[in-house]
């Protein structure tokens, strides 16, 4: 019993210490005004983090949109309500699937790469040697990656939503024969810009912050060995995904919960 309590205390303490370290880390990193050089570094990371995540986002969103249309049609047609397919595809994508799935894919694709890259730089003493040259790696290495993540996830989410709706259109209208006019007009009349589009984007901003923060912190804080790198990479994906799912529930309750 005592041992169990001691274990619990130890776990709680190390967790708290890690949370504290990561909060300090975020504060130290975020509030640097980037110079001209910083903008250049950021643009480079936007390419690695954002643009290179595009293929997986495009393909997944197309398929997810198509699947929702197919599933939705099967249910709706039973009520003779297949005209409402556009509304269903758009709402489920904009409110939930686009922000959540994009963030999960982002944690797997970009987050793990960020952790491994920063971790390898740490293991090969590149971060230390940068410090000895008198350049703060938090500014030079971490900050551009953090900002690239924050900014690219909402953009990727928007792209996910658009392509997903197009996938739903392909299946619903082109294949299953829902009337195209009612597909779009139903969607237009039911989707509210503030409630649905902006709330979905707000979610993705939060997810972008949390997932990128976890990824760069895991990379910066890891034990500099090959085992340490592989563990930290796994942790990025696991913690990132769990954080996204947990936060999604909380945010949904806050945004749509006023019954």
């Amino acid at each position: 019993m005592i041992e169990w309590l001691a274990w619990l205390g130890r776990v709680a303490l190390t967790t708290l210490a890690a949370l504290g370290r990561s909060a300090m880390f975020l504060a130290q990193t975020l509030f640097h005004m980037p110079g001209r050089e910083g903008v250049h570094l950021w643009a480079r990371q936007m390419h690695f983090v954002g643009v290179m995540s595009l293929p997986i986002i495009l393909v997944s969103s197309l398929f997810i949109g198509m699947v929702i249309a197919l599933q939705g049609y099967i249910v709706l047609v039973g009520f003779g309500a297949d005209e409402a397919l556009g509304q269903m595809v758009a709402l489920s994508l904009l409110r939930e699937l686009a922000p959540v799935v994009t963030a999960l894919l982002f944690a797997g694709r970009a987050g793990s790469a960020l952790t491994a890259e920063i971790g390898l730089m740490k293991a090969t003493e590149q971060l230390t040697s940068m410090e000895m040259i008198g350049v703060d790696p938090l500014r030079r290495v971490v900050a551009p990656r953090l900002w690239a993540g924050f900014i690219s996830l909402p953009l990727l989410t928007a792209i996910f939503g658009v392509i997903g709706i197009y996938g739903g259109y392909l299946v619903g209208v082109d294949w299953l024969g829902v009337y195209s006019g009612s597909f779009w007009s139903n969607m237009q009349s039911s989707v509210n810009f503030v409630d649905d589009v902006l709330n979905g984007m707000a979610k993705s901003v939060v997810f972008g912050l949390v997932v990128t923060w976890i990824a760069v912190f895991q990379g910066y804080d890891l034990v500099p060995t090959s085992e340490g790198i592989s563990r930290a990479t796994t942790r990025t994906v696991v913690y990132g995904s769990l954080a996204v799912l947990g936060l999604d529930f909380i945010l949904t309750a806050l945004m749509f919960g006023e019954f």
């Binding site: 390898l120 410090e131 000895m132 008198g134 350049v135």
Partner: peptide
Amino acid sequence: FDMRRRMGMLFQSGALFS
């Protein structure tokens, strides 16, 4: 960091930026 500008250090591992 300002002081380090006036120092140079050759690391045992080299530690070049990859």
